[in-house]
Design a protein around this nucleic acid. Structure first.
Lengths: 226, 226
DNA sequence: ACCTGAACACCGTTCAAGT
DNA sequence: ACCTGAACACCGTTCAAGT
């Protein structure tokens, strides 16, 4: 993922610049929200004219892809190469949820943008390689990848929501909701959905999926319990 | 959900207007994408000055909540009251995925906005009531609601992505991706993630979760198979 | 009660011009 | 090669004014 050396500061400056710009953009999103990020504000924060940014990114969409790449990097932190494949896979999906917690305002980029840059494709490649090492063929890899990614993305967005950080928070704050007269069911369930309970629920969901994966690897179908 | 009568056209015009505006907004989102919806364009489409809309919605966020309410209505279509609770629940979550397919550009509203209007809270109330009728207590309802909603939302966004309709489609189109030299794993998995395969994968994921629900209702823990 | 038009403070992006 | 500043065609929203 890196070949150091032959990298004098003046020579390889462009990729470095891109990264510095994307990092500042992520910083601004973290502090002020995704909605308020603009090329003009980002330029100002970097002490540069807004239009200068277009020299490094073709447009705002490409800049956001740059921010996404920073988040994707975080998906592989702490991976232990010697760990069994299923354990490494679980770690990746737990990391993705952590991104939702650490970068709630930026997480929507993970959930809604497709991964179509080289760096993000390389991440997919390594991830799918791990599925294969676990013993899944292409079909099963696709299936569990989709199920896991779907679940984790939805869980991540819920995490963002529970922290009250999605666009334009107003009116009812669900966390403290209480109206047992008109909404008895909502009122009794809300305490079980507080931010502090989401850890356990997320683990429960992952357990569900990873149990199915283990069973399938052992040659038992999903309904083997019946 | 409706008490007709005492509803002369002139008397109850405001709520009707709101709905007409929201419906036109959804129409514009469906045809041109969420990004390009603006108060000005919506006004023009309705043959009215943009600023008139502010008489019916306090701001754009409230308008988007109005659009969300239209989508939430679609989540309960085709529900058969006499069906067993688990079957009704499954139907709701299948409907949610159908919304992602029918309104791909609008679906991000479902996935990223919190439900905080009266109408959406009423939907939650009915949904959680169904969990209770199935036999779940508040804790289990919260847990399976979160897991199901997470999975379905993530799956919905994937559905949107696979249809190439998220913000600013460029560069690599994953559906036709092929580069077995540099990305062998991605290349072999991509055919299994085509739009035509997502039906089966979605059903597989739902089966996983609903099997766990059935087992828990029968008093068997999640790991009862071991 | 409902709608308008001008105005304010912003956007993303293009382009010709500077060094 | 890199940056700038003016300009274009937009935004959401406020507000005083119209009927």
């Amino acid at each position: 993922m890196s070949q150091p050396g032959k990298d004098t500061k003046s020579q390889r400056r462009q990729p470095l610049e891109r990264r510095v710009i994307a990092e500042k953009a992520l910083e601004l999103i973290d502090s002020d929200g995704l909605e308020t990020l603009s090329m003009r504000r980002l330029g100002t924060a970097l002490g540069v004219e807004a239009m200068t940014l277009y020299h490094h990114f073709r447009n705002k969409a490409e800049l956001l892809d740059g921010v996404l790449e920073l988040l994707v990097e975080e998906m592989e932190v702490g991976l232990v190469e010697s760990d069994p494949p299923l354990k490494r896979l679980r770690r990746v999906f737990e990391n993705i949820r952590q991104i939702a917690i650490r970068h709630p305002s930026a997480y929507v980029l993970v959930a809604t943008r497709r991964f179509r840059t080289i760096a993000t494709l390389e991440f997919y490649e390594r991830l799918l390689q791990t599925f294969r090492e676990a013993g899944f063929n292409a079909e099963a890899s696709a299936r569990y990848f989709r199920v896991l990614a779907g679940f984790v993305n939805g869980a991540g967005l819920a995490e963002v929501g529970s922290r009250g950080l999605q666009p334009d928070a107003t009116a009812i704050i669900l966390e403290d909701f209480s109206d047992s007269e008109n909404f008895p069911r909502v009122t009794e369930v809300v305490p079980h959905l507080r931010v502090t309970k989401l850890d356990r629920i997320f683990a429960f969901g992952l357990d569900l999926i990873f149990s199915a994966m283990e069973m399938e690897l052992r040659g038992l179908g999903q309904t083997a319990c019946e």
